[in-house]
Design a protein around this nucleic acid. Structure first.
Length: 504
RNA sequence: GUUUCCGUAGCUCAGCUGGUAGAGCAAUACACUUUUAAUGUAUGGGUCUCGGGUUCGAAUCCCGACGGGAACACCA
């Protein structure tokens, strides 16, 4: 945020003065009645019918090509770009040529927002354009926009510096159309999900972001303070426990796009705040949830790409339902050759040693299984795969498996070697839940910063009776990365977290 | 948090083993009434991220800070 103005910024500020002297408002208040957009003009104009002879359109000047008594400009609106043909005769039919000679030829800059009225025609070189009859400046730009040029599909001088792109996303969005596309797709994805859930009778709800007990996940929370109550609050790490309270309350299918906050590391797949869709459905189990989820994900792929095949880097992911289902033990058997299904802790430690996986004494049986899976298996599941039946120690909110001792009814959806969803048959036995929380409390006493707190109100809710329920959390940012072919979470968040800029 | 690469004009970059900076686009001025990365002529624009050090001399070498990218660790 430099207080030093560049030559170009000084010149643009001087142009403000020139406008004032001409009696032209640089930032006029009255609305400009837009009656079409660039896309409509390009797709609807018919050179024989000579339609669109009275268009009003507004946008940002992206290029200027003055040629003496005519000037070509390209303006960009929300839908794309359209060329303006501005001639001195059309713009200034009378004696006073100021608007053309001064304003358009000298004061107008790339980056300015303008509104024009005119008629659509096709130039000699075949480009659909607007012959401008009325020109109005709607907002003057005081900073120069990066000028990205293009020829034969090749881009020149693209605005690419990631730091500037993320810090000044507004500039990125103006000059990089593919960035716009990514975010349009993200929004389309969320709309598809919302429609899918609503069509199945779900109710969208809002639950607290400020919580005095951060529950529902194993993660380090952000902490803040409420002055009037003089109590600490945590920013939510998950909304699971609140949605289950609503299930107790009698809403049978609830969902929320939950902005979660975790005070952990940042990298290309982690932002301190991120979005998880969680939904809970009464009287269902995790098998039902797998069916429901794979259909939803398939539908997202089709909505965004028109097909279930989605290109991701050099791979093609096929989101055609049903997805493969592999138990975690079978996955480990397949990729390590070890059948660990009946092993005790000592035998597991031995397997880890043979596989060169680092362990420490705090790791219990469940954690060891998770380590083996994470190190040797996870990355292999490129095509959508449900990994099912996890060790009970890792899943304090999940119901014990109906037939496999030591396991819980849980699945994770793996795509491109990464987890994008985590779901359970929810634990609704209040006594079992209390025992699991107490296990977590012991871990916390041993210094595990990510162990769960005991949430007594949640236990109280379960004691009133929660119907058998299945629930899921889906990483929306991660899913957006998959669906938009992006390798970094920063590319699917408008404003990814950055270190604050130095102020002066 | 660790390792590693990077930071030069508004944007994209060049600047070899040290001799106080260049290009294209953008900007300014002039010409040009159908351009397409318009063209032609001329001009201006930089505390080379910041702070130290070595040196007669540092954008360049060394140390540190700040910011960013990538990989690893933790996690979603």
């Amino acid at each position: 945020m430099s207080s030093h103005l560049s030559e170009q910024e000084l010149i643009r500020r001087d142009k403000l003065k020139q406008l004032e002297e001409l009696g032209i408002e640089a930032y006029p208040a009255p609305m400009f009645g837009v009656n079409c957009n660039s896309q409509q003009i390009l797709s609807e104009y018919d050179d024989v019918a000579k339609n669109l002879q009275d268009v009003n359109i507004a946008g940002r000047v992206m290029s200027l090509t003055p040629k003496g008594k005519i000037t070509f400009a390209k303006i960009q609106d929300e839908k794309g770009k359209i060329q303006l043909f501005m001639s001195i005769d059309n713009i200034c039919p009378g004696e006073d040529k100021t608007l053309y000679e001064k304003v358009i030829k000298h004061i107008l800059d790339i980056g300015d927002i303008v509104g024009v009225k005119g008629e659509v025609f096709i130039t000699k070189t075949g480009e659909t354009s607007i012959r401008v009859k009325h020109f109005q400046l709607l907002a003057k730009a005081l900073r120069p926009l990066p000028v990205v040029k293009e020829k034969d599909g090749e881009t020149f001088d693209a605005f690419t510096d990631p730091e500037q792109r993320f810090r000044q996303r507004y500039v990125d969005l103006v000059v990089n159309p593919q960035v716009r596309e990514t975010f349009i797709k993200r929004t389309a994805m969320i709309k598809t999900i919302r429609d899918y859930l609503n069509d199945h009778g779900a109710m969208e709800v809002d639950t607290p972001v400020l919580q005095n007990i951060p529950g529902g996940a194993a993660a380090k929370p952000f902490i803040t303070h409420h002055n009037a109550l003089d109590v600490p609050f945590y920013l939510r790490i998950a909304n699971e426990l609140y949605l289950k309270r609503l299930i107790v309350g009698g809403f049978d299918f609830v969902y929320e796009f939950s902005r979660n906050f975790r005070n952990e590391g940042m990298d290309r797949t982690h932002n301190p705040e991120f979005t998880v869709l969680e939904f809970y459905v009464a009287y269902k189990d995790y098998f039902w949830m797998m069916d429901f989820t794979e259909k939803m994900v398939e539908q997202i792929a089709i909505a965004l790409h028109g097909t279930t095949d989605v290109i991701l880097g050099d791979k093609t992911i096929n989101f055609k339902a049903p997805f493969k289902r592999v138990s975690i033990y079978d996955a480990i058997l397949e990729y390590t050759g070890f059948d660990i299904s009946a092993m005790d802790e000592e035998q597991l430690l031995d397997v880890c040693k043979k596989l060169h996986i680092e362990t420490d004494k705090t790791m219990g049986k469940g954690k060891l299984v998770d380590e083996i899976f994470g190190a040797k298996c996870e990355g292999n599941f490129i095509q959508p795969t449900f990994i099912i039946d996890y060790p009970v120690e890792l899943s304090p909110l999940t119901k014990k498996h109906r037939s496999k001792p030591g396991l819980v009814e849980r699945f994770e959806l793996m795509v491109n070697g990464k987890e994008i969803a985590n779901a359970y048959t929810e634990l609704n036995d209040p006594l079992d839940q209390r025992a699991r929380f107490e296990e977590q409390a012991k871990l916390q006493e041993r210094g595990d910063e990510e162990a769960m707190f005991i949430d007594h109100d949640f236990l109280r809710a379960l004691e009133y009776g929660m119907p058998p329920t299945s629930g899921i959390g889906i990483g929306i940012d991660r899913l957006a990365m998959l669906m938009t072919n992006q390798a970094s979470i920063q590319e699917v968040l408008f404003f990814p977290q950055m270190r604050p800029e130095a102020q002066d």
